[in-house]
Design a protein around this nucleic acid. Structure first.
Lengths: 218, 218
DNA sequence: GTCTATATTGTGATAGAC
DNA sequence: GTCTATCACAATATAGAC
């Protein structure tokens, strides 16, 4: 791993070049998709030349992996911790909805990028699971088992009707993630500008927890 | 538009070469993404040579547009007709869930392709709206207004709590589309094989309508 | 570490025979 | 309509000066 020592001699503006490249790469990969992105465009975005990208990340795929790890690492650990925790189900749902929308709203194209990347490189899921903290292979498995216990407990108490934890998880994810994944289409189809989309998200943030919980009333 | 007249002289196996190319292109575009797809791979998949793709579709982008239109045209009109109809809300929800899952299950990677394509080429939404039949610009608008009327009617009658039609639409879409869009990740994370994913879809098909309607009980 | 070439291969597109 | 051959340029990657 090069770029560990920084004397800052001859530094143009800020310090970390490697950081700047990674950031620029994220922008371009998200904008164009991994295979649509061009090393030249990334270099320009970072204000350096193309050779430097290879100096730090060797190949385009190396850079792509680094970007995916960095992007996945933002949210995955927090989500895994939250969903796997012992907090009551109601709290989990509400906190997840708020956490996800509040975080992703600042980078609304990230979910589409993640989904597309996983579509073409499913093996990179491992990076996401690593980022989530727990034992790589079973990070999601642990969350599902925790949810299963909580859902069964509620069902037994008669305060919620039964649902498989996998279905529950996909329901919650779908409701929260889909508006971002489909944003370009939604914005046009529903004739929203950025501000309207923001209000749309505000409303979801407020309504979604109740929607999800009400759907499971007995 | 070439390829209208077919003498079938020298045809290798089936008749329509243009059809074969379009089909092969769909396969490869869905597999690799539009910019990741290579004309050579499409040609091989179709069992023809690369020059022939240009003969029929002139450019790669031309082929990409044709594929998008073809794929969008499968479902969009039926969905638009259903959601814009006068059928009771409960029927709409159930029929939509069934229609979508039953249709897309045969080509499970299509939704991810559509979302990715709209992400990088939002202007192609017009093709989708054209395919939906109604006046291009307001196809979705009409659906939203129909839903609004139905939802307000229910709210006034006290049989459903109020919800904005845009939110309702995105909820339904998210619940139905997300599992397909995220399929590669879900299959790995939830440790499913194709058969397990099929059972997962069966369960959703059966449970989702009630889930959606229960969430809006007053 | 950062730059300017440059090598090398990939890729969309066309020309022209059949 | 379909093919082979090839062009022209785009794009990743490397060499080597500073």
């Amino acid at each position: 791993m090069p770029g560990k020592e920084r004397t800052d001699a001859g530094g143009t503006l800020d310090g970390a070049t490697e950081e700047r490249i990674l950031h620029a790469a994220r922008t371009v990969f998200v904008r164009r998709g991994t295979s649509g992105a061009r090393m030249q465009e990334i270099a320009a975005e970072a204000g350096v030349n193309q050779a430097l990208l290879h100096y730090y990340f060797r190949t385009k795929d190396g850079l792509a992996q680094a970007v995916f790890r960095e992007v996945a690492g933002r949210l995955a650990p927090a989500i895994a911790r939250l969903l796997g925790s012992d907090a009551p189900l109601e709290d989990k749902v509400e906190r997840f909805v708020h956490l996800y929308i509040d975080t992703v709203r600042q980078h609304p194209y990230i979910p589409a990028y993640i989904l597309a990347e996983l579509h073409h490189h499913p093996e990179r899921l491992r990076a996401l699971q690593d980022a989530a903290g727990v034992q790589p292979a079973r990070a999601v498995g642990a969350i599902v088992e925790r949810l299963r216990a909580q859902l069964e407990e509620r069902a037994a108490a008669g305060t919620m009707r039964p649902i498989a934890p996998e279905q529950f998880l996909v329901n919650v994810l779908g409701l929260v993630v889909f508006p971002f994944a489909a944003r370009p289409a939604l914005v046009i189809a529903l004739e929203m500008d950025d501000e309207a989309f923001g209000r749309f998200l505000d409303a979801r943030r407020a309504e979604l927890p109740r929607f999800i919980l009400d759907a499971l009333r007995p």
